[in-house]
């Protein structure tokens, strides 16, 4: 696995459960020791899912997402790619892909071991694509799953699902970016798809998973910007009703 930097892109190391992981400013996570690259919610074919419902979003999201993935794959040259679920916006997504886009995806995955973790949007393995589909996957001390599991972990978890984003205060107002959220047991990846928005990392659905506080890594053009968050404050009952699903719906619209 290539560990050399692509011009201008500076990943940040993160140690979790004794493993050294690299957070990539493009929003991916690399595990150099296992030659593995991990990507969060791709939501491929979200555009065409909306088109089916009468909203003609530009049909270029799959192409855009894949070309961003292509850059990351060139940068890291991994032996294995793990997609953390919601890789397609819906179960029929893989069948709707334009021929060109499908060909590009096949090319990207050639010679790479592909692991599709299943998500709530794509509960079945994608049709006609290489790779293995799993509900969750455990290797060494790390468990890869779509949605973070509440409570104690054994020992560490890599997840997606929530599309975390955060706003960093600057002297000219807040700047909002997708972000990683991490503590000593978990890393939550930002969504990777071109049409995926975000849920604020302070939302109880996310913050509740990091009761002792966490560190946020906001995606920048060529590096990450780190911001600590405090432990979750006791919030009134009304706040807790904003469930995880509500939050995720922000990003996934018709889902």
């Amino acid at each position: 696995m290539a560990t050399s930097m692509h011009a201008g892109m500076t990943p940040a190391p993160l140690h979790i459960a004794g493993e050294r992981l690299m957070l990539d400013p493009a929003g991916l996570l690399a595990w150099p020791a296992r030659q593995t690259l991990v990507v969060g919610d791709l939501h491929l074919e979200k555009g065409s899912a909306f088109a089916r419902a009468g909203r003609f979003l530009p049909p270029y999201d799959t192409r855009e997402t894949l070309s961003r993935l292509q850059l990351a794959l060139r940068r890291w040259r991994p032996a294995r790619l793990i997609a953390l679920g919601d890789s397609f916006h819906d179960a029929e997504g893989s069948r709707r892909m334009a021929a060109e886009d499908a060909a590009l995806l096949h090319r990207l995955l050639a010679g790479i071991e592909m692991l599709w973790v299943l998500g709530n949007h794509d509960p079945a393995p994608p049709a006609g694509l290489p790779g293995t589909a799993v509900e969750e996957y455990r290797e060494g001390r790390l468990t890869f799953r779509h949605e973070a599991r509440r409570g104690a972990l054994a020992p560490a978890e890599i997840s997606g699902h929530f599309h975390p984003k955060a706003t960093m205060p600057t002297r000219c107002g807040g700047v909002t970016r997708p972000c990683f959220v991490a503590d000593a047991w978990r890393v939550m990846l930002p969504a990777f798809g071109a049409y995926t928005g975000g849920l604020d990392a302070g939302d109880p659905a996310i913050a509740g998973l990091f009761p002792r506080g966490a560190r946020l890594f906001l995606l920048g053009r060529d590096r990450l910007y780190s911001l600590p968050t405090g432990p979750v404050r006791a919030r009134p009952a009304a706040a807790a009703t904003g469930s995880a699903k509500d939050g995720a719906a922000t990003d996934t619209g018709a889902g």
């Binding site: 993160l14 960093m168 503590d183 000593a184 966490a214 560190r215 910007y225 780190s226 600590p228």
Partner: peptide, 27 residues
């Protein structure tokens, strides 16, 4: 702006305690 703000945060929290170190401190 992000760089500036991140640098400030770092200045306040001490430049040496980043990543795992910070997380350890947090926990």
């Amino acid at each position: 702006l992000l760089a500036e703000a991140a640098a400030l945060v770092e200045e306040v929290t001490g430049g040496d305690e980043i990543f795992a170190e910070t997380l350890a401190e947090v926990t």
